[in-house]
């Protein structure tokens, strides 16, 4: 558990070093995810070392977003002044993205001859 947590944090740290050092617009944690995936694929890190820590964090993934959502209260004034564009764009765009992504993936998968039920 502690070993897994340490590995995850070290990967994130390495990702931050790369992100800031090379001034890439991609955050360190995403680069860290790529590094961990590569290390797992190369066999440098065994999946058992990190499975417990990863499963614990992913089981509560949604919780970690709560504080950012609470930040909406700071912008109540701006949001109430521009509620129509904000709410409409956010809601419709979310459905557009799901429809486009899902249908494109399904069409390409089907062309390949896969069964999509």
């Amino acid at each position: 558990m502690v070993r897994g947590m340490a590995i995850l944090l070290i990967m994130q740290l390495l990702g931050e070093v790369i992100s800031r050092g090379l001034k890439i617009p991609i955050p360190g944690n995403v680069i860290g995810m790529g590094l961990l995936l590569a290390a797992l694929g190369l066999g440098w890190i065994k999946v058992q070392w990190i499975q417990e820590a990863a499963e614990l964090l992913l089981a509560h993934l949604a919780l970690f977003f709560v504080p950012a959502g609470v930040g909406v209260m700071v912008y109540f004034d701006l949001i109430s002044a521009e509620w129509l564009p904000i709410v409409t764009a956010m809601v419709l765009s979310t459905f557009v993205v799901m429809a486009v992504t899902g249908r494109v993936a399904l069409r390409l998968d089907r062309r390949r001859g896969a069964d999509d039920r």
Binding site: L36, L61, F64
Partner: peptide
């Protein structure tokens, strides 16, 4: 904790 959680997404992948 969101940071290490994003890194942890490598495991299911």
């Amino acid at each position: 904790l969101l940071g290490p959680s994003v890194v942890a997404l490598a495991v299911p992948l």
